[in-house]
């Protein structure tokens, strides 16, 4: 299988999208796949629109960046404005429900909206979990990695005190996405 997924997470500096991308990439590796993870460095990643990218493939990944994303997830309007222009037909955009009046999207892009920031803030009482709720939503919709690997990856990526909370965040996002797909059937 030569399937390659290119995923871009966009948001505002401080929303934890780099950590989210690392959790996703590490989970793919735990599943026995190849993964690369890159991100924007510099002042724009400290408060402005910033992105972190992941490639997942069963084969060796040569070009390590994302040039044509299959999946883009945006947690801020700035990310929507900046990081969706190169989306090809057939790709998927996941937006936080709070985002409105973004730019027009390239043709043939499927759009999902989930209240990821609200879920973290209201259901978990911790806005810092938004990134992992987002990973859960993304994986619930796209099934990129096994949930077992995602949870192991969270256990590797966080200090002990934060593991349980983040696994909860992952499951919340994952379930929301699965339920949405079930209902849509």
């Amino acid at each position: 299988m030569a399937e390659k997924y290119s995923i871009r997470l966009g948001g505002t500096g401080g929303q934890g999208i780099i950590k989210g991308a690392m959790v996703l990439a590490e989970a793919a590796i735990i599943d026995g796949k190849n993964a690369t993870q890159t991100q924007v460095y510099g002042p724009e990643s400290r408060g402005g629109a910033t992105k972190a990218e992941v490639n997942i493939s069963n084969e060796r990944i040569l070009f390590p960046l994302v040039s044509s994303p299959n999946i883009v997830l945006c947690l801020s309007i700035g990310a929507w404005q900046t990081f969706t222009k190169d989306m090809p037909p057939g790709s998927t955009l996941i937006l936080d429900s709070s985002l409105e009046n973004g730019p027009a999207l390239p043709e043939g892009v499927t759009v999902y909206r989930f209240p990821m920031i609200k879920m973290a803030y209201e259901d978990l009482g911790n806005i810092l979990s938004t990134n992992i709720v987002a990973v859960g939503v993304l994986n619930g919709l796209m099934k990129l990695v096994s949930s077992d690997a995602a949870e192991r990856s969270i256990a590797i990526g966080f200090k002990k005190t934060f593991v349980d909370g983040n696994i909860k965040a992952y499951e919340l996002g994952y379930q929301a996405a699965r339920e949405y797909l079930q209902a849509a059937k």
Partner: peptide, 9 residues
């Protein structure tokens, strides 16, 4: 910079 900052398997 790309190899230094790249994370991969």
């Amino acid at each position: 910079e790309i190899i230094g900052h790249l994370k991969e398997r």
